Structures are given as structure tokens and as C-alpha cells.
Computed example of a mutant assay.
Amino acid sequence: MSAATPLRRATVDLAAYRANLESLIARLDPVEILAIVKADAYSHGADVLVPEAVAAGIRWFGTVELAPALRLRRLGIGGDASFFAWQLSPSDDLGAAVDLAVDLGISTLDQLEAVADAARARAGVALVHLTIDTGLHREGCLPSDWPAFVTRAVALRDEGVVRLRGIFSHVSETSEADDQAAARVFERAVADAEALGATVEKRHMSSSSAALEHPERRFDMVRMGSNGLGIPVTEGVTAADRGLRPVLTLSASVVKVKRVAAGTGVSYDHTFRAPTDTTIALVPLGYADGVSRRAQGAVHVVVAGAPRPIVGRVAMDQFLVDMGDDPVEVGDEAVLFGPGDRGEMTIGEWADATGTIPEEVACRVGARVPRVYLGGRP
């Protein structure tokens, strides 16, 4: 390990991120892609990824919450691309959203009146996407309330305080039958809105998996998060299957090596005892850094070029690897997951082995793990 190499590191391949997005844009053309960068771009770093996405051709971004969209806009990150937030709270600065032209997903009459009031106060126009609940029962106006909701939105548009930018929803991805039913609700809601005088610029309801697998549900725009990062979420489908490359590699440097005798217990509770004399390597990543305690006995880590198992309890700051009789030295790299080029597990394989989904694995990589960016544009 050189002096410039962080002890722990989450390496983000920006060239792979751009290539993934360019591939998806070409595949879905002419449907537009809204890149999801919520939770600091799934912990990859939104400040860095947004400009790379713009370079790849993305012109819409979703942050879910309003505050991150306002921050990115104030910093000028993303240029004139559109930012979309739809999980709004009563304390949100809707006036700033009007001033900074952030698109807002609106689910209730109260929210609609609040954004209209903010627009009047700023002598501006609120950019609004009307949200219809098609069965997920999170955000969204219930179909029974939809006519009154749309009628009021049209009146505010005619007043000049609201611009109807879109109608959107989500699918539950429970089953094909459920998603077909949701699509029918969405299509009916759009038709009813148009009959009431609402014309919108973007209709969108599909996210990463649905957008690729169901062209009939793409409408004008799809929301892509995980696929851009090379982590498809469809069961049994790998990044390679979709021509994508995982962008995140989690690794660290070995900080201690010990030779232990047969029968020696290691880490908390001695859940592992060495069956023979063996070498144990200490890796400074733990559950504070996003390494699940379920990783013990379930995954392999590539250390000094060889796949080796995690043994003993994963602690808050560290875990142990059984190296057997393989040579290992302090400073050797331990790769937990990455694109798979060196025999390491992919993030999808790691998620499967630890009983979760790859998005959760990425989001759990803790803040004390430095992000190292490779492949950026000149």
C-alpha cells in the first residue's frame, strides 16, 4: 500500500458509469432517462456522478427529497438539467424550488395549494408532476380523488402559477398481473386528466427493471438508478447479461497477519476455530462500513490474488480472512466486491450471499470509507 492509498476505499469507475448510461440511452431511445441519484447517488457521490451523467447525455435527475436537489442546483452541478423531487415534507422550502426550477411530484390538494402559494409569493411558476397511486400506496393521489385533484391543477395552470410537467406513478413489481393492473390505472388516469384539460410533457411510471423488460410501460420517460450503476435488480439477471458493468469496488489493505494453531478461536464468540494451523489476515472494514455480519462463511474475499473466506464474527471495524498457507503481507489488497475481473464477487453476488439486494449493499458503505474516482473525463 502506497502512502497515497487510503486504508479503506470504495472505488467508483466513472468511465463504466458513463458507458452504462450511454448504452441505456441508446437502447431506450426515444424514451428519455431520468437518472436517480437519491441517497447521494446510492452512496457513490452525487456531486461527482451528476456531471458524468450529463456528459453521457442525461438531462433529468431524481433526488426523491427536495433538499439534495436544491443543493445541487445552487452549486451549479448538472447545469441546466432538470431535477425532480417527490418526497416532500411540510418544512420543505417550496419557494426555493420555484426560484431554482426544481420539478416537484405532488400527491395531494394540500401540496398543490402549498406550491401554488409559493409560486405566487415569488411571482414565479411551480413545475409540477401530478402523482397517481396505481397500487403501491406510498406517494400518489387515490383514483377516487383524481378528478378533483386534476381539476384544481388545471385551474392553477390557467392562473399561471403552475406548469404541468408530468404525470407519474410507480409499479410494485409484485407480479406481472399486478404491474399490468397498475399500468391500466395509470393509462386511465392520464386519459382522464387529458379529458379534464391537463396536457403534460412527461408520463413516467417505470424504474430500472420495468423500463428494460416492458417497453409498453416506458411512456415518455423512465427512471433509472441501479442499472446505471451496473447493478440490475431482476432476479437471476447479471450486469453482464444486460451489457452493463458494476461501477463500485469495495476494498481495503491488510493491516495485520497472524499465524495461529489448530483449534484457535478468532473474533467475538469464537464462532470459528481453525481446523488446522493457518494464517489469519485482518482487514479494516466492518459493519460500520457496510459489511454485513451475515458475510461470515457466506462470501469470499480476494486477498493477494486468491479467494479466501471471511471467518469469525464481522466486527464494527474489521473482519478476519483465513489465508491457509497462502502468502500474505501487511499492505496486500483485500477486494470484497467489484466488477469480477480479478475473481472477486460482484455486488450482486455479494448481496445474494448476504440475503439482501445490491442497492442496500451500496448504500450501506459507510461515510468513513473514502470514495476514490477513476476514469473521469479530462
Rank of each mutant, 00 (worst) to 15 (best):
L7D: 03
L7K: 03
L7M: 08
A10Y: 03
V12T: 08
D13W: 12
L14Y: 12
L14A: 12
A15T: 14
A16R: 01
Y17W: 01
R18H: 14
A19H: 14
E22G: 06
E22F: 10
S23T: 15
L24A: 02
I25D: 01
A26I: 02
L28Q: 07
L28S: 04
D29M: 03
D29P: 00
P30H: 04
E32G: 00
I33C: 00
L34W: 00
L34H: 01
A35P: 01
I36F: 04
I36G: 07
K38T: 09
A39G: 13
A39E: 13
A39N: 12
D40A: 10
D40M: 13
A41N: 12
A41L: 13
A41C: 15
A41H: 10
Y42T: 10
Y42W: 11
Y42Q: 06
S43M: 13
S43E: 14
H44S: 14
G45S: 10
A46C: 06
V48C: 10
V48S: 09
L49Y: 12
L49T: 15
E52A: 14
E52P: 13
E52K: 01
A53W: 08
A53S: 11
A55K: 05
I58T: 04
R59W: 09
W60M: 03
F61M: 04
F61Y: 09
F61Q: 04
G62Y: 15
V64S: 08
E65W: 05
A67K: 01
P68D: 04
A69L: 11
R71M: 03
R71P: 00
R73F: 06
R73S: 14
R73V: 05
R74T: 11
L75N: 13
I77Q: 00
D80M: 02
A81D: 07
S82D: 09
F83I: 05
F83M: 08
F83Q: 07
F84P: 08
F84C: 02
W86S: 10
W86G: 09
W86A: 09
Q87R: 14
L88G: 02
L88F: 04
D92S: 07
D92T: 04
L94H: 06
L94R: 12
G95M: 09
A97S: 13
V98W: 15
V98L: 10
D99A: 11
L100V: 13
A101C: 13
D103N: 15
I106H: 08
T108H: 09
T108C: 07
D110P: 00
D110W: 02
